[in-house]
């Protein structure tokens, strides 16, 4: 089956189902979710378009009507000792896109000190909390045999031994061998997780790898189009798209699926590993608003961090899971609904 046929199939199937639901994969944000308020200020050139959402939902089909220019944004927590950072608001309705306005970014989220060690802590945690070490060695009691004294204690001129499974013996047991499965689950403190996200966002912003767009409405579902857009805009080989919901527009979902290295993610799935893995981070304004709000709330909250209760018991991971080939096939083939 050629690639184009697969794509056509995918497109047909997706058009029958209007929305693709992306399941959450990360537990980073499950603790705190706050409702988003529309705190954006827009200066309208046309009286007809009254809100940002209305004009952005038109997408690229009305090229003649000009979009409202966004000139400022209310920052929810006061900015002390520094100044808000600025970012362009771009559109994705064409290859080059248009600059729709300027956004204020809160410096406590997008201009914190680049603590590389905190990034490392977060990534180490993300790698380790799901890691289970299945290595196992039998002890001298569990090995077969070895109950009998191989030779008498005295009288033979040989060294004294009590078991052929002693660690000194070839084919004996290993002393202090691995006794898996062992879980490496632990939680980083919430503040460190929050600081990690803020640091990663700051690094992205400082290194010019952060892009803010009004929405993910792209005119074509062709993966080539998105790839070309990334090429024209110098986004690099890997791009992470983050929206505020897990219900994404069709075109972007299909395009991202067709491009290796591109990922689509809801804001509650945002994590340090993915941000550092991808070269460019593309946020929608709504996602930006939500992420910034939550990180600032976390930073200023006074409530005590609750201990995370790990419900995973040793019996849950007692046997090594078999390779689910169907699962791997699922990732390497187009989605069917």
């Amino acid at each position: 089956m050629s690639l184009s046929t697969i794509l056509r199939n995918v497109c047909c199937k997706i058009t029958m189902q209007p929305q693709i639901i992306i399941r959450p994969k990360c537990r980073m944000f499950q603790g705190f979710q706050a409702p988003i308020s529309s705190s954006l200020k827009f200066h309208h050139r046309h009286e007809s378009s009254n809100s940002f959402e209305a004009s952005s939902s038109e997408g690229g089909n009305s090229e003649t009507s000009q979009k409202p220019v966004m000139t400022s944004r209310t920052l929810h927590f006061p900015v002390k000792h520094t100044y808000p950072r600025l970012a362009w608001l771009e559109s994705m309705d064409s290859l080059e896109g248009k600059k729709l306005g300027m956004l204020d970014l809160h410096p406590d989220v997008f201009a914190v000190y680049p603590r590389i060690d905190v990034l490392h802590q977060n990534i180490h945690w993300q790698k380790m909390y799901r890691h289970i070490d299945y290595n196992f060695e039998k002890s001298r009691a569990e090995l077969r045999g070895g109950g009998r004294k191989p030779w008498p204690q005295k009288g033979l001129g040989k060294a004294r031994h009590g078991s052929i499974r002693s660690p000194l013996w070839i084919r004996g047991a290993k002393a202090h061998g691995p006794r898996g499965p062992k879980s490496y689950f632990h939680m980083l403190p919430r503040s460190v997780r929050g600081l990690g996200l803020r640091t990663a966002l700051s690094c992205k912003y400082a290194q010019n790898d952060l892009v803010v767009v009004d929405s993910f409405d792209i005119p074509s579902a062709d993966p080539e189009f998105l790839a070309e857009m990334a090429d024209v805009r110098f986004w690099g080989y890997s791009v992470l798209f983050v929206d505020d919901t897990d219900v994404m527009p069709d075109n972007i979902a299909v395009s991202v699926h067709g491009n290796e290295g591109f990922s689509l993610m809801p804001s509650y799935g945002l994590n340090v590993y993915s941000m550092l893995k991808h070269e460019t981070l593309v946020l929608t304004v709504a996602a930006l608003e939500k992420i910034e709000r939550k990180l600032l709330e976390e930073m200023h909250s006074t409530e005590k961090e609750q201990k995370f209760v790990n419900t995973l018991r040793p019996e849950d991971f007692h046997t090594r899971p078999k390779k689910d080939e169907r699962m791997y096939r699922k990732w390497s083939q187009p989605l069917y609904f």
Partner: peptide, 29 residues
């Protein structure tokens, strides 16, 4: 220590001209 300071500004300016902060070039203290 999270608010921007002169130190922060300098550090952020520094990483502007450095290789991209990515999985391959971070390390602990």
């Amino acid at each position: 220590g999270n608010m921007s300071s002169k130190v922060t500004e300098r550090a952020l300016n520094l990483i502007k001209s450095m290789p991209r902060v990515a999985l391959n070039n971070i390390k602990p203290l």
